[in-house]
């Protein structure tokens, strides 16, 4: 990997244990070392309890890493307490339970929370809120004065995502962002992620499901029992079926088709791992 590429996240030998020093101590991360380059989309995949959420929360400085490990996020060492509030204005973390993330009574105020914390002028805050709501498919006029805690689960997640977008983060950490979403909301969320990438943000997605990831992530980092078990390039993920299955994961349907065809001697070499890319590869072979 080229050293010239700036690292958004750099982690060395990180271990973390929940309830450390108690009879119920539970190790979550064990000697994790990884690097996420600026502008990359990286997926952290693994079964439940693999340490994905812990890793994201360590990156946002919410969990205190022990003295042995080193965590640098956007060039800031998370062991420095004074730097953390500055760091969090540049990092957006979407929690698995979006409702935990909402804290203001009205939708507009909630989305404006982080920009206001950053001390932005009123007009800019309003503009950011409008754009963020538009990006997640919430009508500004209709939703800005709605009560946050009366929203449905899906709407709450959209508000949480809009709150993240309004802060215009350089690093976006998404914890199981598509879990429990209906197909339309899922598509729109993936669209938001792609747009964020186009705008130059670094994105880390933690997910226990491989669905949606192959066509989206540049790299997949597989976690197993708190350790990095493997790293797989997103574009060629279908070549790693046996490795993924050994880690308790499975390829999405589309990738499985590409894998099965390759096993039968037909290497599609799709441009992208989405229906469009695969259809194009089949047509190319068919016509040649």
């Amino acid at each position: 990997m080229s050293a010239a590429v700036k690292a958004a996240i750099s982690i060395r030998n990180l271990s973390y244990t929940y309830m450390a020093g108690t009879p119920l101590a539970t190790p979550a991360l064990d000697g994790v070392s990884l690097r996420v380059n600026a502008g990359e989309i990286v997926a952290l995949v693994g079964q439940a309890g693999a340490g994905k959420t812990t890793l994201l929360q360590v990156c946002d400085g919410l969990l205190r890493p022990p003295a042995t490990g080193m965590v640098q996020v956007l060039g800031i060492d998370t062991a420095e307490p004074q730097a953390l509030s500055r760091l969090r204005l540049r990092v957006g973390l979407l929690f698995q339970r979006a409702e935990a993330q909402l804290l203001e009574r009205f939708v507009g105020d909630d989305i404006a929370f982080t920009p206001r914390q950053a001390g932005l002028p009123r007009d800019e805050v309003r503009e950011r809120v409008r754009q963020a709501m538009q990006a997640v498919g919430l009508d500004f006029e209709e939703f800005k004065d709605r009560r946050t805690f009366n929203l449905s689960g899906g709407e709450m997640r959209k508000v949480a995502l809009a709150g993240l977008l309004a802060s215009r983060p350089e690093l976006v950490l998404l914890d199981e962002p598509t879990a429990g979403l209906d197909p339309e909301s899922r598509t729109s969320l993936l669209e938001v992620v792609r747009r964020l990438r186009d705008q130059g943000a670094t994105i880390v997605i933690a997910s226990s499901s491989m669905e949606d990831l192959p066509g989206l992530a540049d790299r997949l980092i597989i976690l197993n029992h708190g350790r990095v078990a493997a790293e797989v390039p997103g574009a060629d993920v279908w070549r790693y079926g046996p490795l993924l299955r050994a880690q308790g994961l499975d390829l999405p349907e589309l990738c499985s088709i590409v894998e099965h065809l390759a096993d039968r001697g037909l290497d599609l070499q799709p441009r992208s791992l989405d229906p469009d890319g695969i259809a194009e590869a089949i047509c190319r072979i068919w016509t040649s």
């Binding site: 990092v91 935990a100 993330q101 982080t114």
Partner: peptide, 12 residues
């Protein structure tokens, strides 16, 4: 969870 979520959004 709630405290972490709020801190991540800038609550001190």
């Amino acid at each position: 969870d709630t405290m972490k979520a709020q801190i991540s959004r800038g609550v001190q």
